[in-house]
């Protein structure tokens, strides 16, 4: 369960996020959507505990977070995944290799991660999370720089991880269509404020606000 009350985030005098009330139940899959600078990443960072904020936040359980600019460590693909694990080297490598298989990177396990493409790097960032267990999974535009095939791989890997772990999923995305595929609830943000909170179908068919209509229409065409 995640409970936000009067969350406020300012950079100097500029308010970038203002959420009076938000509740996300355990096991819920939620997508945060909206234009650039709408506050999606800021909200995820606040929940992940990466940045300070004003207000009250309750987030029960362990959290895994994939930032928008998730960095691949300057080491091999396999070492990138094993780095956050503890235990015997052989066991860690087996677990890591399984995770790499899930995102289709097993053939590149020896390669240095700094030489990966944008899409491969995103898949590796996800694989690093898949080796852990968590109660809350936060993904900030995980397919931002990924092609259609890579997007499908990432979405499937995330879905099966969420199913296995029965965890809460919050994904930030620009795409209402991805929101429909990945979640059962969509929260739309505009200039740091919550403007829509509905099911993905409702958002796509009948957005409640003018901004929602404009945003969805832009994606249709």
């Amino acid at each position: 369960m995640i409970k936000c009350e009067n969350i406020l985030k300012k950079y100097s005098d500029r308010t970038v996020l203002s959420i009076p009330q938000l509740e996300i139940k355990s096991g819920e899959s939620v997508c945060l959507t909206g234009a650039n600078g709408s506050g999606k990443s800021t909200l995820l960072k606040i929940i992940a505990g990466v940045i300070p904020f004003e207000g009250k936040l309750e987030a029960q359980g362990s959290i895994l977070y994939m930032p928008q600019k998730s960095l691949c460590f300057d080491m091999s693909v396999l070492s990138n995944v094993t780095y956050s694990l503890s235990g015997k080297k052989k066991d860690k490598e087996e677990i890591a290799f399984e995770a790499l298989k899930k995102v289709g990177l097993e053939a590149l396990y020896k390669k240095n991660a700094s030489g990966l493409s944008g899409g491969e790097a995103a898949r590796l960032s996800l694989a690093r999370l898949l080796v852990h267990e968590c109660d809350i999974l936060l993904l900030d535009e995980p397919t931002g720089a990924v092609d259609i095939e890579g997007t499908e791989i990432i979405e499937n890997a995330v879905k099966s991880f969420v199913k296995e772990n029965k965890c809460t999923l919050i994904t930030a995305t620009h795409s209402p269509l991805q929101a429909k595929r990945m979640s059962d609830r969509v929260i739309m943000l505009e200039k740091g404020e919550k403007v829509e909170d509905s099911s993905p179908e409702e958002l796509l068919i009948a957005p409640k606000t003018d901004f929602g209509k404009k945003f969805v229409d832009m994606w249709r065409y």
Binding site: A48, G49, V50, Y65, L71, H132
Partner: peptide, 19 residues
Amino acid sequence: HLSETARGLSLSKGKTLLL
């Protein structure tokens, strides 16, 4: 970015510094 990534993986302070 490295700090955010390490935080997202819940790395300890020691492991983050080493990273």
